[in-house]
């Protein structure tokens, strides 16, 4: 059970949009498909969905070439698209029918989803009258109405307020619990980090990093140190860090982020801070974040 993308290539004229891309999603869960704009994420998704043919390579679902007859898939594209002049319930029913449901089942499923996402009062309203966030909920229902096994979510959290973001997150958690396979593409690295077990980072159509996220991060080791302290102690903290060859990466209102060469260097720095009367209220040695890995990989390639 799973998706296999093997040595897939796609060109538009002279430009290679996807170049020898291979990855495998063996078990249900969330898979991260990351990359900068124009890296080839959407083209990859379109090839998997069968709306674009690949020039070379193959895409399999359970060992067989993927098509809409052997897997039920749902897709929430990055560019939100709904019929503006059509009532919400009517268009959801339509999309459910196109995905093989009967009119009655589709309408019932749409009503259930509208209820769950707290937008049932808009069922008989034209979609254009809904706010951006609510339109996004309709788009999510369109992707999930037929209970798909393989789900593609392209920037699912953009344009959502914190409350609705939490609502979407709870739905994703439920889908994971229901053993669905989700391919998520997003620029919000913290969200991807929160859900993705495996990922691939694309740059100019090529994979620059892929594998299990925990393993990737572990491979980097402890590279970062976060120190929190009073603002008036910042200058003193930074000067001690320089003595221990810690490179300042970032500075916020109450925290400093340093690049460390080893745990020992970070501990020697902490000892010196305390000996000199600087008592940090936060001290964390950690692996790099996905955001930092992404910047390192894609930034280096750029």
């Amino acid at each position: 059970m799973g998706l296999t993308v093997s040595n897939v290539q796609k060109s538009f004229g002279d430009k290679k949009a996807v170049d020898a891309l291979s990855f495998e999603i063996g078990e249900p869960g969330v898979f991260g498909l990351l990359g900068t704009n124009g890296a080839g994420k959407t083209t990859t998704i379109r090839m998997i969905l069968g709306i674009m043919e690949c020039d070379e390579g193959e895409i399999l679902w359970d060992g067989k070439p993927i098509n809409r007859d052997n897997v039920k898939y749902g897709y929430m594209p990055e560019e939100r698209g709904i019929y503006p002049k059509v009532q919400v319930l009517e268009q959801l029913t339509y999309f459910g029918q196109l995905r093989g449901m009967s009119r009655g089942d589709s309408s019932n499923a749409a009503l259930r989803w509208l209820e769950r996402l707290g937008v049932s009062e808009y069922a008989k309203m034209n979609a254009e009258k809904l706010s951006k966030g609510n339109q996004q909920k309709i788009q999510l229902i369109t992707a999930l109405i037929h209970d798909p096994e393989l789900i593609f979510l392209d920037e699912p959290f953009s344009a959502l307020d914190p409350i609705n973001t939490d609502m979407f997150k709870s739905i994703i958690s439920q889908l994971i619990a229901d053993k669905r396979t989700i391919v998520m593409s997003s620029h919000q690295m913290s969200t991807v980090e929160q859900y993705c077990r495996d990922l691939v980072i694309l740059d100019k159509g090529r994979s620059v990093l892929q594998g299990n996220l925990s393993s990737i991060k572990a491979g980097y080791g402890h590279t970062n140190l976060t120190v929190g302290c009073d603002a008036q102690m910042f200058d003193k903290t930074i000067s001690f860090a320089e003595k221990h060859d810690l490179k300042l990466l970032d500075r916020t209102a109450d925290e400093c982020e340093f690049k460390i060469s080893s745990d020992e260097a970070a501990q020697a720095f902490l000892r010196e801070l305390i000996d000199n009367g600087v008592f940090p209220n936060k001290y964390e040695i950690r692996e790099p974040s996905l955001h930092e890995i992404f910047i390192e990989k894609v930034g280096a390639a750029v």
């Binding site: 709306i51 898939y73 897709y75 594209p77 698209g81 709904i82 019929y83 503006p84 196109l98």
Partner: peptide
């Protein structure tokens, strides 16, 4: 208009062109 409203991407995944 289906292209303009970007509904095409959802539509084309749901049924063959």
């Amino acid at each position: 208009s289906e292209k303009t409203s970007r509904v095409m991407e959802t539509l084309i995944v749901s049924a063959k062109p």
